[in-house]
Design a protein around this nucleic acid. Structure first.
Length: 567
RNA sequence: GGGCCGGUAGCUCAGUUAGGGAGAGCGACGGACUCUUAACCCGUCGGUCGCGUGUUCAAAUCGCGCCCGGCCCGCCA
């Protein structure tokens, strides 16, 4: 390592800023981390378009962890665009990698997670060791497994309003984009071995960093017997491929491959991508921070004669306190999340500081929404907290994104957010008009609320409803449209009849609530038993929301006949 | 074992880059609403800022040592 090593740490959001009086971009504190990253990029004085990269190897499921690669880069891209730069955000699908083992779970085209039993698993098993782009789509829809997976990521980016350019690694090889890089590597084998050997023990005097695809069986091979950089070819033997404890058998074929008929190993492929795609910035997970990043930096400079991009390490997050694991089923996809959260809430989650380990807890997703709502209120100057307000003023415009469907003359400050758990309560009734009425009665929607704001506010109800159902939590009650099957004591039944009379006479929710207590006492019924009877009649459950006021908002005929057990 | 990154209230987190008030929401508890029944309102409780130590008039924040967790240091990505 030379003197530049100090600045090669990928932890640019943790390190103390380097003192550099000549650097006009290093202008100190930022409330939004993406600004600090953008400073680093601008300090390199890059030429437009600035290119931001993310990348992922096709696995079975595009889960929310992969979204880090998309969203972290996106916020930086947007900040740079605001500063007047042209920015491209590319996303490489590292799809020339071989399928090394069968995934336990797959996501279908809609993002729904399915097991291997639901697809043609045998087709996958027969293709172990082959590039993802050479394996049929298990769902039979796209041209390959890789294409299927890339389409999932593309769809997720679209759903999150992030414009990305998908780049197939296989296509880059096929088009010859890597030809020069491979030529460079194979022309200086000693140099590459020296550099890479400092990071990887497997690199010895025999090591050739190029993996041809066997012309006979199509698997990726690791045994190169001769190289001819000038001719642009290598000689190889299709030997066994060790994958963890397993072995993918080679066919024994010996042949010649061009640079377009193979791939670089990851440690070299990554810096080669930086060079070929002219990457200025790349966020990556902490697993890369101490492994491939330092070696990539070194290889970029010593082998490819290029400067590595500005890095940024993000912490992984957990789901319900556990690490994400598609095989263990502990994953959540973007489509799933968007069934319970507005897009802006998901984007907000990724606008939070990348260096913080975070837990996404579906059971208590209302907490995340509450925090978003507060963040939004801070943007509109409604929260007495200077720090939060500074962060919100900077980050909120990037978080809400372009997706809001509002009239041109809408004042964003007029937006309405129903508290998420209240929205879940409204989700107990199905009728949209009744939902709105309840929200108005509770004062969440004012008389002068614009139509678009009401529509947006009520959009949360269905999401909260889905959440309640999916987690089967204390909001998962459903107003019963038909009379549930309930056994009632005679005195409870008599009390219900009395209560029905009170409601029939016309009274408001508060009075109904009061009448419930009075009626119960009149009939010598335990108050709790009486409430339970009410909950069973209306929700087919022993508990529920504050009942009297809830009933007061429902249609009177319906309430009366239900209390009388008539319908 | 070595390196890197984290550790702030029961939970989720802000604050750490530039040293000066320890904070928010939720939960819990209590109250209010003629009313033990979950939405809304008011209030209270709740933290040795992982531990120790040093520097400083002053440390969650800076230095050093340690503890705990994650990642990397094999392969692969």
């Amino acid at each position: 390592m030379d003197g530049g090593a100090m600045t090669d740490s990928p932890h640019i959001l943790s390190d103390r800023p380097t003192e550099d009086a000549d650097d006009p971009a290093a202008d100190g504190f930022h409330d939004f981390w993406a600004d600090a990253v953008a400073d680093e990029i601008e300090a390199r004085d890059p030429t437009d378009p600035i290119v931001i990269k993310g990348g992922v190897s096709p696995s079975g499921v595009a889960h929310l962890g992969n979204v880090n690669e998309i969203m972290r880069g996106h916020f930086v891209a947007e900040v740079l665009r605001e500063r007047g730069h042209e920015v491209r955000q590319v996303f490489t699908s590292d799809d020339k990698d071989p399928l090394r083992k069968l995934p336990r779970k797959l996501a279908d085209a809609d993002g729904e997670i399915v097991g291997l039993g639901d697809v043609d698993a045998g087709a996958l098993g027969r293709n172990l060791g082959k590039p993802y782009t050479a394996i049929p789509d298990p769902f039979g829809e796209r041209e390959s497994y890789a294409a299927h997976f890339a389409a999932l990521l593309r769809a997720d980016a679209d759903r999150l309003d992030v414009p990305i350019e998908m780049v197939s690694n296989t296509a880059l090889y096929a088009d010859g984009a890597f030809d020069e890089a491979i030529h460079t590597v194979l022309s200086d084998l000693d140099g590459v071995r020296d550099t890479l050997g400092a990071y990887q023990n497997k690199v010895d005097d025999e090591y050739v960093p190029f993996n041809p695809v066997c012309a006979e069986c199509g698997t990726i091979t690791e045994t190169v017997t001769a190289v001819d950089p000038a001719a642009g070819t290598v000689e190889y033997a299709c030997t066994d491929l060790e994958v963890g404890d397993d072995v993918i058998e080679g066919c024994g074929h010996e042949g010649t491959a061009t640079f377009r008929e193979g791939k670089l190993p990851w440690r070299l492929e990554w810096p080669a991508q930086w060079d070929v795609l002219d990457i200025d910035f790349e966020p990556f997970g902490k697993d890369h921070a101490e492994g491939s990043w330092p070696s990539g930096v070194d290889l970029a400079r010593t082998v490819f004669d290029t400067e590595p991009p500005v890095p940024m390490v993000y912490e992984w997050f957990t789901l319900g306190g556990e690490t994400l694991s598609s095989s263990a089923g502990n994953v959540v996809t973007v489509p799933e999340l968007l069934e319970i959260l507005e897009v802006e809430v998901v984007r907000y989650f990724f606008a939070l500081h990348p260096k913080r380990g975070r837990d996404l807890d579906i059971q208590r997703i209302d907490q995340l929404v509450d925090r978003f709502d507060r963040f939004e209120r801070a943007y509109f100057g409604e929260v007495d907290n200077a720090e939060l307000t500074r962060f919100a003023e900077r980050a909120y415009p990037f978080v809400v994104g372009p997706s809001l469907d509002r009239p041109a003359d809408a004042d964003p400050a007029d937006r309405i957010r129903l508290p998420y758990t209240f929205a879940a309560v409204l989700g107990m009734v199905e009728d949209p008009a009744l939902r709105e009425q309840l929200a108005r009665d509770e004062g969440h929607i004012g008389d002068d609320a614009p139509e678009w704001a009401v529509r947006e506010a009520l959009g949360r109800v269905e999401r909260a409803r889905t959440w309640a159902e999916r987690t089967d939590n204390e909001y998962n009650y459903r107003l019963q449209t038909t009379l549930p099957d309930v056994d009632l004591d005679d005195d409870v039944a008599a009390a219900l009849d009395d209560l029905a009379d009170v409601v029939a006479a016309g009274t408001d929710g508060e009075a109904i609530q009061a009448a419930m207590y009075d009626t119960a006492r009149d009939h010598d019924v335990e108050v709790s038993d009486f409430f339970e009877a009410g909950y069973r009649l209306f929700f087919d459950q022993p508990q529920g929301p504050r009942l009297g006021e809830f009933l007061g908002d429902l249609e009177r005929e319906y309430v009366v006949s239900r209390l009388r057990r008539e319908a």
